[in-house]
């Protein structure tokens, strides 16, 4: 309940944040604090310094850029869920944000923090994978863009360098998307979360992508399942057959007291089937 001592710095700009991160030993960024503070309260995380980016101007906007939405790193989950731009352009993303934690958590937690933390049970990662999002980060060497598929490396590990700050996420709009989640009854994190995107061409599935979190240490793309659905109609049989392929995406499913890895893999198939059906429905 009582975090260790640490030094606190409030960064006024991204550049200052990068500078502080580079110069202070064992420093961590804090945005909403809703992954970091719980860990610090249990003394599972003991950073020597926090660099608060919560008030850096310009990181809290959602804007449209062609067929994409650009979401600032500090945009809260509640703002994503409530945004009419997101609801209209990318309903799955709004759905994902609304599925995170609870009202209080959504009022504080940020997109950037969630992605950087890369919790296996976090909801955004599956959606970002399925949507083909690109994460923009600024580090000592300047700005770079990382594809979501390259971003999640392992449990609580991303492609970010120690002194890099996520500034925004570019999310291609997709009408035909759905995110469905089996909530952990205690923690509310995803036991399994499936984000599915379906693009139709005439009656056939022209494009499909499926992101899954909760099952393995990092969120993954179920490419085999997605490929299996393409090239034909999104019929219940074809969806079921495609969903049956998700297992190939999981190397080592993780288990806990509530759900073993084996069961999570099973649930992933079930939720994939459901998410594909909703996505296809929305796409048509």
């Amino acid at each position: 309940m009582y975090p260790n001592q640490f030094d606190y710095h409030r960064a006024a700009s991204v550049a200052e944040a990068v500078e502080l991160l580079s110069s202070l030993p064992d420093a961590k960024l804090v945005a909403g604090g809703h992954s970091l503070i719980p860990a610090m309260k249990l003394r599972a995380a003991q950073p020597a310094a926090l660099v608060d980016i919560g008030r850096i101007p310009g990181l809290s906007d959602i804007s449209a850029d062609g067929d994409s939405l650009v979401i600032g790193a500090l945009v809260t989950h509640a703002s994503v869920a409530d945004s009419t731009a997101v609801q209209g352009g990318c309903p799955m993303l709004a759905e994902t944000a609304a599925a995170i934690g609870d009202i209080q958590v959504r009022n504080r937690g940020t997109v950037g923090g969630s992605l950087a933390h890369a919790d296996p049970g976090a909801d955004y990662p599956a959606a970002m994978l399925a949507l083909g999002a690109e994460i923009t980060a600024v580090g000592a060497g300047g700005e770079r863009t990382i594809a979501a598929s390259d971003f999640f490396v392992d449990i609580l590990t991303t492609a970010l360098a120690d002194n890099e700050v996520i500034t925004s996420v570019r999310v291609p709009c997709a009408a035909g998307g759905a995110y469905l989640k089996h909530r952990h009854p205690a923690s509310s994190y995803a036991v399994v979360g499936v984000a599915a995107c379906v693009g139709l061409d005439g009656g056939n599935v022209a494009s499909c992508s499926i992101g899954i979190n909760g099952v393995t240490g990092k969120a993954v793309l179920a490419d085999a399942a997605a490929a299996a659905l393409c090239g034909g109609p999104a019929s219940p049989d074809r969806i079921a057959a495609a969903a049956a392929c998700v297992g190939e995406a999981f190397d080592e499913p993780l288990g806990d007291l509530y759900a073993s890895g084996e069961f999570r893999a099973h649930l992933a198939g079930v939720y994939t089937k459901r998410a594909l059906a909703v996505a296809a429905e929305r796409a048509s």
Binding site: R10, I37, K41, R108
Partner: peptide
């Protein structure tokens, strides 16, 4: 009130700039 140490229970909810937050999961400096 403080009912947990994992931000789960909501006993500590207050309004911060008009929005409900769990005050056990906000640093005073924030």
């Amino acid at each position: 009130n403080i009912g947990c140490d994992t931000s789960q229970c909501g006993s500590c909810t207050v309004l911060m700039d008009g929005k409900a937050v769990k005050s056990c999961t906000v640093l005073a400096v924030q």
